[in-house]
Computed example of a mutant assay.
Amino acid sequence: MYLLQAENTEQLNQALRVNMLEFNTQHFDAERQAIGFKYLDKQHELVAGISGHVFGNWLLISWLWCAESARGNGLADSLLTSLENAAIEMGAVKAQLDTLDFQAKPFYEKRGYQVKYQLNNYPLSGTRYFMEKPLVAAK
């Protein structure tokens, strides 16, 4: 017999994540390898960063953020280039990310990413874009 309980905690979220990753690992022939880069200011405070995973032959980009005060200096472009190049060295041949309509879709499109799927009315009136790009080693 099982007891159903309501629980809206980060602890439950984390426990479910750990259990799902453990289950999935049994069925995948690849491991997730964390990858990321950051920029710090003179006070060693984070001003921009990017992170994700190489999973098999895919670069899965999780986060790209740049402080408002540091925008327009090419940091995001440099971070994305660094991440893509490092992922290629780790065996990635494609990259995948998602972004929202008020975020960086035009930035990613300029970098060769194409929308493969979009969720309209997300979460209510916006759009969430899922984008991919083939990775090519720099010459």
Rank of each mutant, 00 (worst) to 15 (best):
H53M: 05
L4S: 08
L16D: 09
D41S: 09
N57H: 13
L79I: 11
N8W: 11
T127S: 11
L97D: 11
W63Q: 13
M20G: 00
W65V: 12
G74E: 08
E89M: 01
I88H: 03
L21R: 12
A137D: 00
E132S: 13
L83T: 07
G91D: 03
Q103E: 12
F28S: 12
S125W: 05
A34I: 02
H27G: 07
Q14Y: 09
N8R: 14
M131A: 03
Q96L: 11
W58Q: 03
A30F: 15
I61H: 04
V93Q: 11
Q33P: 00
S69W: 00
S62Q: 13
D98H: 10
Q26Y: 02
D41E: 12
D41A: 06
A48L: 01
E109M: 10
A138N: 13
R71G: 04
V54Q: 07
L64V: 13
G126A: 04
D98A: 01
Y39T: 09
H53A: 06
L119G: 01
L119D: 10
N57I: 03
A137L: 07
N8Y: 12
K110T: 13
L83Q: 10
F37D: 14
K116D: 14
D41F: 11
A104L: 06
S51I: 01
L75F: 14
V93H: 05
A30Q: 11
A87D: 05
L119H: 09
L59T: 01
G91N: 02
A76T: 04
L80F: 04
Q103F: 06
W65E: 12
K133Q: 08
L59F: 03
R17F: 08
W58I: 01
A67Y: 02
C66N: 06
L64H: 08
E68I: 02
H53Q: 13
E132M: 14
Y129P: 02
T25Q: 14
G52N: 02
Q43M: 04
P123N: 09
L124D: 07
A87S: 15
G126V: 02
R128E: 04
S125C: 08
K94V: 07
N19C: 05
G36M: 13
S51R: 11
L135G: 01
E109D: 09
N24Y: 08
G91H: 03
G91W: 00
L60I: 06
Y2P: 13
H27Y: 15
V115H: 03
A87Q: 06
F55P: 00
F55K: 04
Y113L: 05
C66H: 00
T25M: 01
L80Q: 10
N24F: 02
P123V: 13
Y2C: 11
E89L: 05
G74S: 07
A6I: 14
E84M: 05
K139V: 04
T81L: 12
Q14I: 10
A48M: 08
A138C: 07
L40C: 07
N19E: 15
L79M: 07
